[in-house]
Design a binder for these strands. Structure first.
Length: 751
RNA sequence: GGGCGAAUGGCGGAAUUGGUAGACGCGCCAGACUCAAAAUCUAGUUCCAGCAAUGGAGUGUGGGUUCGAUUCCCACUUCGCCCACCA
C-alpha cells in the first residue's frame, strides 16, 4: 500500500512550476485582472518565521483562487532590504550589508519556493539594488522639485545607541523602536517630506477604503484634524502672542497664557528678575526626555514676568511657560481656561492662578478660524550607511542642490568601517572620494544622510508592474493596467507605511504619473501567531517555531499552509498548537487516500458536493479561510461514509488547491482534470425532505421531517407539530399564537 | 486618561441578516485491525439527572427589548491593542 508522501509530491510540483514559469503574469490580457501582494518582508538572517507564512499564504490562497476562477493574476514578491540589522551586523562582524543582504535574500527565496507559493519570480525586487534605489532617488527629486522635500532645523528624536534621528512613528514610549534604548531630543538640520499638504485628502479618502475599521480609525486619529481659532493676545508693550484653541467661545474664562519651552517669543517676555529661572526651566524641559515628561505628569512651569490683555475681558493676565504645551502643535501657545480644561485647572491650582467661571459667550467670535493637525511632516533623514542616499549635494556656501537625474543613481560607496561617527554623520562621511561631486561644473560635497526605509516602500507596489524598466520608475501603460492593488495583506505598519504610500500615490497622481489616487483597494490585516504558551515567539524565550522544521519533519508545506489558514480567523492572533498541525496532516492524508487508495463508488453526492462548492467559494470571498477548510473536512468525512465518485474527487482537489496546491495538483493529475474553479448549481442545493424545528415558547421541543413542497403550508406544519406528543406535553392545548419562519424552517408555538 | 476590540465545552474555534448554541479540529474515551505498539478506521464526548426516551441549566456579570438574544440596547467586570498633556 502506498502512503501520502508530502515531501516527494512537493518537490515534484515545485520543479514543474519553476521549469514552466507557471505563475508569470501577463501584462496584456482579455481576462479581468487581480493584483495581489503582501507587505514585503525585511529578509532577516533568521529566515522565514511562521508569521510570514501566515501573511504570504493568505495572498497565495487568493492568487490561486482567482487564477482558478479565470483571472489574470499578478502576484509578485520583493524584499525590503535596507535597515539597521544589516548595518549593525556589519559593524559587529565586518561583513558588508551588501553581502549579508544577498545571503539573506537567497535564503528567503529558497524557503519561499519550498512553500509552493504562486509567485511570478520574474518580478522579484530588492530595495537596496541600485536598479531599484535609482528610482527611489528619482521619486525624492520629484518631491523636491515641488517643494515637498525640504530642510528644516528642529528638535528631533535622536537614538544615542543607533546614532540616528528617528521619526515620531519610530519612537515607542520614549524608546527607539529598533534597539529599545531611551531616545533624546537634539537640534539638527534635517530633511522632511511635506505630508501635511495632503492631510485633508488623506483624511477624507479614508472613508472610501475597503480597509478594517481599526486601521482607518488609527489613521484618522494620527492625522488628528481639529478645527478652532487662532487668537492674538497683545502684551502690555504691544507684542502679539498667537494662540490656538478649539474652544474660542470660552475666552471669557481665559485667565493666563502658557507658552511651550521652545517658543521663540519667550526671550522677549522675560526680565532681569525672571531671566535665570525661565532660561533654566526651558533648557531642562527641552533636554528632558519624553519618558520623563510622561512618567511625571505633575504640572511644572514658570512665570515669564510679562502680562497680556484678554481681548474679551480686557483683563491683564500673566504669561507662563510650561512643558505641557507642545511647540509642534497649533502655535505652541495656549490661552488657559482652567474652568473648562482639566490640564489648565490642574496648572492653575498648583500655581494659584485665578479660576474664573465662563460667564459669557462672545457673539462675534474672536480670532480667525483655523484648522490644525496632529500629524507632523515626515522626517526622512537618517544618519546611517545602509540606506538609500539622498540625491543632494552642497556648494561651498552650504546651499543644497539636487543631483541631476542623469547622474542617478547616487551609488552607495564601499567603506572599510561601517560605524557612524559621533558628529552626527553616517559612515558615508568616511568615503572621502565619494563625497566629492561636480554639478554644472561646480565642486560640491554630497549629503551623507540616507532616506528613511519607509521611502523605499512608498512606491514598490508600482514597481511590480515593470520591475526591470530602465527608463521609468514604473511603466505608465502597465501600471494603469495592473493598479491599484486589489488586495494587500499584512499585519504591521497600520499608520506609517500605509499612510506614506497613500501620500506618495496622491502626489504622483497630481504629477500625472498615476491614474488613481488610492493605491490599495482592500486591506487584510492579519493577526500574529504566538508560541504554544500564548506568548510572543522570541529567540531569547526559546519558543520559536521554525516553519521549515515543520516541513522537514515530514508534514510538508501543504500541511503547514493549510494549518496556518485553519488556525483561526485570519485577523486574530492565534497560538501555535503542534497537535493541531497533526490534525491537518490527517485531513490531507484522508484526501490523498480517497484519491489514490479508495475505490470509486457509484453514488449520487450532488447535494453535499454543491453545498461544499458554495460554502468554500463564499468563505474564500469573505476571507474566512478557517471555515472554508472545516467545510472541506466535513465533505471528506461525508465521502468516507457514503463513498466518493470521480466528480467528488475532482471537486475536492480543485477546492483544496489554494490551500494545499501540491497535493491538489497530484490529485488532479491522477484524475486527468484541470484546476478550473467549480460552479455550484442551485438545483442541487435543495433536497426532497426538510427538517422543521418546533419550539414551544422559544424552546426546542421537536424536529419534523416534511416534504420540501410542504414548507409553504403552515397549517399542515402546525397540525403535524401539535400531533407530536412531546409538543402536546408543553402546550397543554393552550395556544396563544404561532410564529412560522419559513427561511429558518422554524415554528414557534406561544402559549 | 481617551479610542477600538474581545469574552462561547478540558483547549483552538463555529453559528454570515435576531431563528435548532457548540460545526470543524485538538484532547479524551470505547471498539476494530495487530502477537503488541504506531498508523489507520468506526462510534461517543457542554454540564447535571437518567439504562434510555427525555428533562433541567448553559455563550464574562446584572438588567432590558422580543414569540425567540451568543447576536440588539443599558450598566458593570476582566483582558488585549492603539494613542497618550495635541489646547
Amino acid at each position: 500500500m502506498n502512503r501520502y508522501n508530502p515531501l516527494a509530491i512537493e518537490s515534484k510540483w515545485q520543479k514543474i512550476w519553476e521549469d514552466s514559469e507557471a505563475f508569470k503574469a501577463d501584462d496584456k490580457s482579455d481576462k479581468p485582472k487581480k493584483f495581489l501582494a503582501e507587505m514585503f518582508p525585511y529578509p532577516s538572517g533568521a529566515g522565514l518565521h511562521v508569521g510570514h507564512v501566515r501573511n504570504f499564504t493568505i495572498v497565495d490562497v487568493l492568487a490561486r483562487y482567482y487564477s482558478q476562477k479565470g483571472y489574470n493574476v499578478l502576484r509578485p514578491f520583493g524584499y525590503d532590504t535596507f535597515g539597521l540589522p544589516a548595518e549593525n551586523y556589519a559593524i559587529k562582524t565586518g561583513v558588508s550589508p551588501q553581502s549579508a543582504t544577498a545571503t539573506n535574500v537567497a535564503n528567503f527565496r529558497n524557503q519561499l519556493k519550498k512553500l509552493g507559493y504562486a509567485i511570478d519570480w520574474s518580478r522579484e525586487i530588492n530595495t537596496s539594488s541600485p536598479e531599484y534605489y535609482k528610482w527611489t532617488q528619482w521619486c525624492f527629486l520629484q518631491l523636491y522639485k515641488k517643494g515637498l522635500a525640504y530642510q528644516k532645523e528642529s528638535y528631533q528624536w535622536w537614538c544615542p545607541v543607533d546614532q540616528t534621528v528617528l521619526a515620531n512613528e519610530q519612537v515607542e514610549n520614549g524608546h527607539c523602536w529598533r534597539c529599545g534604548s531611551e531616545v533624546e531630543k537634539k537640534k539638527l538640520k534635517q530633511w522632511f517630506f511635506k505630508i501635511t499638504d495632503y492631510a485633508d485628502e488623506l483624511l477624507d479618502d479614508i472613508d472610501t477604503l475597503d480597509w478594517p475599521d481599526k486601521i482607518k480609525i488609527m489613521q484618522k486619529n494620527w492625522i488628528g484634524k481639529s478645527t478652532g481659532a487662532e487668537i492674538n493676545f497683545e502684551t502690555e508693550d504691544k507684542k502679539a502672542i498667537r494662540v490656538f484653541t478649539t474652544r474660542p467661545d470660552t475666552i471669557y474664562g481665559a485667565t493666563f497664557l502658557v507658552l511651550a519651552p521652545e517658543h521663540p517669543l519667550i526671550k522677549d517676555l522675560i526680565n532681569d528678575n525672571t531671566r535665570k529661572e525661565v532660561e533654566d526651566y526651558c533648557r531642562n524641559a527641552i533636554k528632558k526626555s519624553e519618558i520623563e515628561r510622561q512618567e511625571n505628569k505633575e504640572k511644572t512651569g514658570v512665570f515669564t514676568g510679562s502680562y497680556a490683555i484678554n481681548p474679551a475681558t480686557k483683563e491683564k493676565i500673566p504669561i507662563w511657560v510650561a512643558d505641557y504645551v507642545l511647540i509642534g502643535y497649533g502655535t505652541g501657545a495656549i490661552m488657559a481656561v482652567p474652568a473648562g480644561d482639566d490640564r489648565d485647572r490642574e496648572f492653575a491650582e498648583k500655581f494659584n492662578l485665578p479660576i474664573v467661571e465662563i460667564t459669557q459667550v462672545p457673539k462675534k467670535p474672536f480670532g480667525t478660524e483655523k484648522t490644525t493637525y496632529r500629524m507632523r511632516d515626515w522626517l526622512i533623514s537618517r544618519q546611517r550607511y545602509w540606506g538609500c542616499p539622498i540625491p543632494i549635494a552642497y556648494d561651498k556656501d552650504g546651499n543644497a542642490h539636487p543631483i541631476p537625474e542623469d547622474q542617478l543613481p547616487v551609488m552607495i560607496p564601499e567603506v572599510a568601517d561601517y560605524k557612524p561617527d559621533n558628529s552626527g554623520h553616517s559612515a558615508l562621511a568616511k568615503a572621502t572620494d565619494w563625497l566629492k561631486v561636480t554639478i554644472s561644473g561646480k565642486e560640491m560635497i554630497r549629503e551623507t544622510d540616507t532616506l528613511d526605509g519607509y521611502a523605499c516602500s512608498s512606491w514598490y507596489l508600482w514597481r511590480y508592474a515593470s520591475p526591470h524598466d530602465t527608463a521609468n520608475a514604473w511603466d505608465p501603460a502597465k501600471i494603469s493596467y495592473w493598479s491599484p492593488l486589489d488586495v494587500y495583506v499584512g499585519g504591521d505598519h497600520a499608520v506609517a507605511h500605509l499612510l506614506y504610500i497613500r501620500f506618495w500615490c496622491k502626489f504622483f497622481a497630481d504629477e500625472g504619473k498615476l491614474p488613481f489616487r488610492e493605491p490599495i483597494i482592500k486591506l487584510l490585516y492579519n493577526g500574529y501567531i504566538n508560541a504554544p504558551d500564548g506568548k510572543k515567539m522570541s529567540k531569547s524565550k526559546g519558543n520559536v517555531i521554525d516553519p521549515l522544521d515543520v516541513i522537514n519533519d515530514g508534514y510538508g508545506a501543504d500541511t503547514l499552509r493549510t494549518y496556518e489558514m485553519f488556525i483561526g480567523p485570519y485577523d486574530q492572533d492565534a497560538a501555535w498548537n503542534p497537535r493541531s498541525v497533526g490534525g491537518v496532516y490527517r485531513f490531507l492524508n484522508r484526501c490523498w487516500t480517497l484519491c489514490f487508495e479508495a475505490k470509486l463508488q457509484n453514488v449520487k453526492n450532488e447535494n453535499i458536493r454543491h453545498k461544499t462548492i458554495k460554502k468554500v467559494t463564499e468563505d474564500i470571498e469573505r476571507a474566512a479561510f478557517n471555515t472554508a477548510i472545516s467545510t472541506l473536512m466535513e465533505y471528506v468525512n461525508e465521502l468516507y461514509k457514503v463513498g466518493a465518485n470521480e466528480e467528488d474527487l475532482i471537486t475536492l482537489a480543485k477546492l483544496l488547491k489554494p490551500f494545499a496546491p501540491h497535493l491538489a495538483s497530484e490529485m488532479l493529475e491522477q484524475l486527468s482534470a484541470d484546476d478550473s474553479w467549480p460552479e455550484y448549481n442551485e438545483k442541487y442545493l435543495v433536497t426532497d425532505m426538510a427538517e422543521v424545528v418546533i419550539q414551544v415558547n422559544g424552546k426546542l421541543r421537536a424536529k419534523l421531517q416534511i416534504p420540501v413542497e410542504d414548507l409553504d403550508n403552515q397549517t399542515k406544519i402546525e397540525q403535524l407539530a401539535l400531533a407530536d406528543p412531546n409538543v402536546q406535553k408543553f402546550t397543554n392545548n393552550n395556544i396563544k399564537k404561532t410564529i412560522y419562519i419559513k427561511k429558518a424552517k422554524l415554528l414557534n408555538i406561544v402559549c
